[in-house]
Write a protein that binds this DNA or RNA. Structure first.
Lengths: 353, 353
DNA sequence: TTGAAAGCGCTAACAG
DNA sequence: CTGTTAGCGCTTTCAA
């Protein structure tokens, strides 16, 4: 490995022309076809490859975009990453994955580090946001697009979705299915998703004409299956010790919902027979689970795609700053909330049937 | 945004010292404490941030490492990515995710593109490998570590695992549990994992003292749940139309195994009662599934970690080329293959019980 | 259209 | 220990 790298100077020498002409010929900008021919040949013979860093330093562009999240293991973020890659890659951008860390402070640090110029732009989906974060993004050296919260009012590009409304849709669906004692399994309230989803649940359950007999919220430590199992046990037991029982659980995401189903099974409850369960994010894991999970889709792939298109506009298209795009949540009804069949494309018999 | 960037020259001017001294002071290499003090202050006042590209061009290092796979959506690769990030990030390396594409040709192109110098090294887990690939890696401009196949014989660093042996362990486990009519649900044979897993199954089922009555292989189009459902239907129906029935299915990965369980349910078969099913990769989706999936762990996180440590050694430690590390497969018995309880840390009641 | 030359921001010789 | 200087590889003025 490591054969000595061929530089543009060498191509120029071989072609017997100037360095400048060589560069122009390779880019097809203002060069005679004869020149192009000569240079192309020389380049091919030497196996020339333009050096990314030299180019970057001169052009003041890295052709890289960062994607930043707290936990790249989360399927939602993986979907976003895939979509972002699909949009940006054809335009010659590479994707650098970076971690925001768990706290706002580390997230702000990351945004500030942008002025070391290692990327031309960033898509970030922060778990927690505060004024310092907003300021950091506004002062950032390169365009930043935020997924997760509308920040157009601050002149920040963002892509968001109405997850509060999505939770409302889940509640409505359960009420329509005759459920009356609804529990809410949420994650930490000091996160952006936790906060808005709680708001959604509270709004839906205090709405005019709300017909439930009982509502109860329980918070999981984070948005994982394990935390969901724990919190769901607490929730079910608490209600049971009050001498009643839930007939539905709305979970703040699919992983928590799966945790809830496991906890329900432990207690001998059938899903959806005794207990209907809904999730959010419409992840593959939920689609594949048995019973397949009724879930509110927030179309992560679409949010990723839109965010990528926003950075692209900012970088190449000279788009104006402060745009805000929205993705509408959509309830996908499957087996976990309805005893009969769901809308699943490949409906399977229900295990508890 | 985009405040004019502060360069080292400006810091030097402000501190009233030379450019070189400024650089040295900031790196703590051969500078008086007084000098360090002055420069630090000036840098802080100006909010100086070293520019990544300038540094890279001069040092001929990007402090970036690429991670390349065909499909970053696959949970196995996500685990690897996470692990690689955890190892490399503390050493100051950023991770660039790139796609190998589906074919060997595109994979080779990617490896060849390394001499444009956008990263200092690469971890790649290719689906398909041939001589051209091996040559490309050997001629690559930067260290490349391959996950998936032992290539030390070619002087290439690699991390592999005995997936063939892993499949054998699954077969042995099923035989020990009294299963005698075993189907094998594999993916495409022209992929590295498909080929070796098939080899494993064939070896196990033709071994001396092999006690099964019947073995059947069916190939899915790829390693996804949907393809698994299709292939499992074919497999089950084919055996049924021959007037008999399988009592176990070994799947080449967890996603196929889940597909197999769905197909089995469609046909009214209980898992593991009528049909025991095993997977491979020990993914979260399998752990969380109901019934939880017996699976052969290939410890993707560990393979990622080891690969990252290999590049690190090559980059920073001056390690020798051509190392080969192995991860031992481990069978994790859960509900899908054993009627009673599994080894799951959080055992739950069995749905079919 | 072509060539000469400057310079992106930084580090590392080399002298002093 | 400090300063001067060269140069990483490239693109893009500016003149011819």
């Amino acid at each position: 490995m490591t054969p000595p790298r061929t530089t543009l100077v060498q191509v120029a020498q071989r072609a017997g022309v100037s360095l400048a002409s060589t560069s122009r010929a390779l880019h097809g900008t203002g060069a005679s076809s004869e020149m192009v021919e000569r240079v192309r040949t020389a380049a091919a013979e030497l196996g020339y490859r333009p050096h990314a860093t030299g180019r970057s330093l001169r052009m003041q562009r890295t052709f890289q975009v960062a994607f930043a999240v707290a936990d790249i293991g989360n399927p939602v973020y993986v979907e976003m990453l895939t979509a972002i890659h699909e949009v940006l890659s054809p335009h010659g951008y590479r994707i650098v994955v970076t971690s925001t860390g768990d706290t706002v402070a580390s997230t702000v640090d990351l945004v500030r580090s942008l002025d070391s110029g290692f990327v031309d732009g960033m898509v970030i989906s922060p778990l927690r946001v505060d004024d310092g974060f907003v300021r950091a993004v506004r002062e950032a050296a390169v365009p930043v697009v935020v997924i997760g919260r509308a920040l157009a009012a601050h002149g920040i590009d963002s892509v968001s979705t109405d997850s509060a409304g999505g939770i409302g849709a889940a509640v409505t669906h359960l009420l329509a299915a005759g459920r009356r004692r609804i529990g809410f399994l949420n994650g930490p309230l000091d996160t952006t998703p936790g906060e808005s989803r709680q708001r959604g649940f509270d709004a839906a359950t205090t709405a005019a004409g709300f017909s439930a007999e009982l509502t109860e919220t329980e918070l999981a430590e984070d948005f994982t299956v394990a935390a969901g199992v724990d919190a769901a046990r607490r929730l079910l037991d608490r209600v049971a010790s009050a001498g009643t029982a839930l007939d539905a659980i709305v979970a703040a995401n699919d992983l928590l919902a799966i945790g809830a189903i496991r906890a329900a099974r432990e207690r001998g409850l059938s899903v959806p027979g005794d207990l209907a369960v809904t999730g959010m994010d419409d992840t593959e894991i939920g689609r594949v689970f048995q019973p397949s999970l009724t879930s509110v889709s927030l179309d992560s792939a679409r949010r990723g795609r839109l965010a990528a298109e926003l950075v692209l506009g900012l970088l190449d298209g000279g788009a104006e700053q402060g745009q805000h795009l929205t993705v509408r949540p959509e309830l996908v009804v499957r087996e976990s909330s309805v005893p009969a069949a769901g809308t699943s494309t490949a409906p399977t018999r229900q295990e508890d049937a």
